[in-house]
Every structure is written in structure tokens, then in C-alpha cells.
Design a protein around this nucleic acid. Structure first.
Lengths: 207, 207
DNA sequence: TCTACTGTTGAACATTTGTTCAATTATGGT
DNA sequence: ACCATAATTGAACAAATGTTCAACAGTAGA
């Protein structure tokens, strides 16, 4: 008789990580319909009860999943920017390329995001996580815009508003592409953003 | 004995309209949590069974609600533009003012919209309604951008991409403000968009 | 090898969900 | 005043939901 253990014990940290990843997979596949504890536990290969053992409620698990996805996505584009290492303008382009790559421009991510938006009002943790990661996102943009200005011949502008506007344009393009990829091609979205930055550094904006 | 009738008969058209409006009120108040047939019928002052009598399923009712909200919002800003009646540039500003007014920049509307985004993949009707109304939205922007160019001294640009970019910026600003109104003031969003158009007509964009 | 600890299980429970349908009743036409 | 039509009701149903908890079992330390 081979004694195959019915389950493997794991330290809470590791198990929680698995559950978060399973949650993101479920959300990516079916959106809010995939968000039941039974579906998640099946995806993670664990029993139903384990979720409430590690998290006070399902919402806390989902909040943890939000935290992970938001930081992962930001880290992804930031890493691309660091790797590019060229001029400030080239770094900005690297950011755009990352944003319009299939890694981020992905309908699976919208399915997840929509559920988070839905929760952001009810869950304090989700809202705090949004505020924090979104501020980080804009700070990254603002820093890159700042670096652009510190070059001769480039006029100054309101960095904060510029970052907010560029961030909005990126999000808006991302959202609309996910809702209907036929509206425009990723390269076109890229071009729209590049043109916006070119216009900004040329001093055409009164910001 | 006063014979107070237990209900009032109505033609399907009228009753459906009431149900759609009740659905939008429910969604605006509690988002997806307010989307149960019991909650909607209570809000509409009707019985549970009446929904499935007028609509094959709940999703069809929600799709009808999407159709109404989307067209209502577009009509609202278009009407403001028509009333302004000034120069093309002034009409564009009227559009912006409408967009950043409390009529549209409203967290209640985001609660509704998030539910629709969630449904747009599953419901063919919702997706079609989105594609149609969004195309109308962009067409309106494109027409206004076109009118801007037909004036002396204004350089030409890719109207389609310009409309997509401006639409994205508007949506992105709207979304982020609804998620966190502390990020920026409506007037600041307005200013960002005005600056974008000024930059566009000044020929700074390579679109 | 034994023991204590605790990660893990899954049946059970109370709610809530969308839909169905037979009975009821308002209402316009005759 | 009556009837035929169909709008309306609400109990009933099956399915799915999040949470609880007593029992189980793997695992590290003695």
C-alpha cells in the first residue's frame, strides 16, 4: 500500500500566495462569475474551508489579489523602463511599449479589474490598495515627465496635471481596447500617446 | 368599502420603461449588489414575477437599461453642444463642460457602468449596445474636431486617431475621478482636455 | 516512536439567487 | 353588465452562494 498523503501542509505565507494566484486565474477566465469560493478552491486544488481559515472572509482574499496584480503590473512596466536605460524620451517610449504590449493590453486583465472596481467602494482594503498603487503609477509618470523637462530647450509645464492627463489617456485607451479591440490597433494607441508627449515637450500645452 | 385596486394595469411599453428606470436607480445606489430581481421589483413597486413576464431573463432587462443610460448620457452632452451654438472651439468647450459636470462625473454612474462592463462579454446585447453608443460618442468628437480644422490657419491631422485619443482621455479622467475624487478637481480635468485640444489645433501633434 | 500543534478537510447551514406557473384581477370592448 | 384578454401576483423550486466547525491528518520536535 503506497501511502499517498491526502494533502500537503504548507506554511500560511506559501498557501496564501497560491490562493491569491488561483483567484487571479479564476477572475481572468470568467470575471465575477469565477469568484466563488468553490471555484477558487478547485482551481487552487484545496478544500472549500481553507479559504476562511487563512482569510477572515472572501473579500479579504480578493483584496490581497488586487494588491498583487496592481503591484505586479506596475513593476512590469517600471522594469522595462529601467532596462531601456536611454534618454528620458526613450524611457518614456519604453513605458508606452510595455503598456501596449500583450502583457497588459489583455482582456483577461479587464475581467479582473472590473471586479476590483466593483469592490472598491465596499472594501476599505481594495480602495486603499487602489489609491496607493495608482498614486505610484502617476508618480512614475510624473518622474519621467520631469526628466524630460530637465533638458535644454524644453519648456516647463504642470507636472502633476500632465501626469494625470497622460495616465488618463493610457487607461482610457487600455479600457476601450479591452472592451472592443476592433476600435483601434495597439500601435495606434502607442502613436496617440507618443504624439501627446511630443506635443507636451514642444510647448504646445498650456498646462 | 373603498375598492382600492391592488395594482394598476399598464401597457408593456410603459411598464418596461418603469422597470428600466428602477433598475438604473438600484444599480446607482448599490452597484451589482442592487441588481437582484427582488430589489428591482421592490424599487419599481411591482411583484417579482413581472420582470420575467416582460423580459425573457434579467439580463435582457439590464441590457435595456444599458441602452437607455448610454443614449441618455450622449444626448445630454450633445444637447449642451447644440445649445451653445458658438464657434467650433466653443462647442468643444461646451462638450467638455457637460462631461465634467455633476451630471456625468458621478460615482453613481460608475456603479452602473462597472456592472455593464462586467456583462459586456456575456451579453451579446450589451456588447452591441456598447459598440454602437461608443461609436456614436467618437463620431460626435470626430465631427467637432473636423469642424475645428475647417478654419484658416489650423493644420490638418488624423481625425480618427484624434477622436480616439480625446475620447480615451475623457473616459480615463472620468473613471479615475469616480474611483478617487481626491486625485484632481473637475476643473483640472477640464483644463487638461482644453490644453490637449489647444495643442492639437496648434499643430504640435504628429497625428 | 510518540506527542502536540495546527494546517486541512468537507459536510452542514442559512441565505440569496433567477425563474416558473397557476391563480387572480384590472380593464377595454361589446 | 358582462366577458374575454392579458397584465399582474406571489408562492414554490432548484441552484448557488459564503461561512462555520467538528473531525482528521501531516509534520516537526522531543
Amino acid at each position: 500500500m503506497t501511502d499517498t498523503p491526502k494533502f500537503r501542509r504548507q506554511i500560511p505565507e506559501e498557501r496564501k500566495k497560491e490562493m491569491v494566484e488561483a483567484t487571479l486565474r479564476c477572475l481572468g477566465q470568467k470575471g465575477s462569475e469565477g469568484l466563488s469560493v468553490r471555484n477558487i478552491s478547485a482551481e487552487a486544488g484545496i478544500s472549500i474551508g481553507l479559504i476562511n481559515h487563512h482569510y477572515p472572509s472572501k473579500d479579504d482574499l480578493v483584496a490581497a489579489a488586487y494588491e498583487k496584480l496592481a503591484t505586479d503590473l506596475l513593476h512590469y512596466v517600471v522594469q522595462l523602463v529601467e532596462q531601456s536605460g536611454g534618454t528620458p524620451r526613450e524611457r518614456m517610449s519604453a513605458f508606452f511599449r510595455g503598456y501596449f504590449s500583450s502583457e497588459i493590453l489583455d482582456q483577461k486583465i479587464l475581467r479582473v479589474w472590473v471586479v476590483f472596481w466593483n469592490m472598491s467602494e465596499k472594501s476599505e482594503k481594495v480602495r486603499q490598495s487602489h489609491d496607493r498603487t495608482y498614486a505610484g503609477f502617476r508618480a512614475q509618470l510624473e518622474q519621467m515627465l520631469c526628466d524630460l523637462v530637465n533638458h535644454p530647450g524644453i519648456p516647463d509645464f504642470n507636472h502633476r496635471l500632465a501626469a494625470i492627463g497622460l495616465s488618463a489617456m493610457l487607461d482610457g485607451l487600455w479600457l476601450e481596447w479591452c472592451l472592443n479591440p476592433a476600435t483601434f490597433a495597439p500601435e495606434e494607441g502607442l502613436r496617440i500617446c507618443e504624439a501627446w508627449v511630443d506635443g507636451l515637450v514642444s510647448g504646445a500645452f498650456d498646462l
